[in-house]
Amino acid sequence: MNAPLLRVENLRKHFALTKGVLFTRTLGHIKAVDDVSFEIRAGETLGLVGESGCGKTTTSRMILNLEEPTEGRILLEGEPISGLQGEALAVYRAKVQAVFQDPWSSLNPRMKVGRTIAEALIVNRWGDRAKIAARVRELLLQVGLRPEQAEQYPHEFSGGQRQRVALAAALASRPRLIVLDEPVSALDVSIRAQMMNLLKDIQAEDGVAYLLVAHDLATVRHMADYTVVMYLGRIVEQAPTASLFAEVRHPYTKALFSAVLMAEPGRQADEIELRGEVPSPLDPPAACRFHTRCPYAMPQCAEVEPPLREVSRGHAVACHLFE
């Protein structure tokens, strides 16, 4: 096994919730991410799944160095990323790129898309004008657009094409890792499949790793080699994707799986319907955070925090049922 490209160690992010402007009081802390560790190997895809507020976006923002961890560290190729400045930070940003759900947010409406794609290359003084233009052409072809479309503005593209432009811009600096935050959920079904195929092709060609933040399990199944399931800031289950889909262990993961509506009527498997909603991350339940909604909760679940424990090769679960 090759060394990990990215390591996340005991990552925590707590946001202080404050009141007042002049005399600020801290009312409490939102533990958005609480002790999260995982690895991404070069050329592989890690899927990060969970519902709103589970901390998946905060985790990806820390990896993008847009958010400073409260505790814990992130290492890229063995080097910690905290405190990176100047040249080192620019190098990091070239190596770790992102594509977000809404391509509008990543594209400047007044800039020709060719210029947007070239931006990273210009900033990093990657080469002269002709060399950059050649690279932009190459990138457009790689994402399935025509080179002459470099002269068009974002509004002239469809949603799926805009997402391709955002991907081309992310690929420009030849990153080792791209954070894909819900990259296909804003796209139509038929376009979504095109984008997923494209992402896999690019990975096969360039060996780039992906951190795929998604809520759709079928998308994760098709894209990810390894899957991490989060609930209220904690990892509840992590496993090689094939192993996870073969046998789901954690009751929360089971609930997530049974909430997936299969596009096959009558194929609805044993269903776990969760009562109530996700508790507030400001005041999460003690011990196992899922015990308030768990159909299998036992007395100890409210008292002792279950550690993440390996139940089979590479498959770890944080649940007292598996002790």
Partner: peptide, 23 residues
Amino acid sequence: RALIASVPKMTGPIGRLTTIEGQ
């Protein structure tokens, strides 16, 4: 037919997804 085929599934083989070319 093409629309249903292009939806990623929770079971079955994982291969290239069927797409609908064009717009």
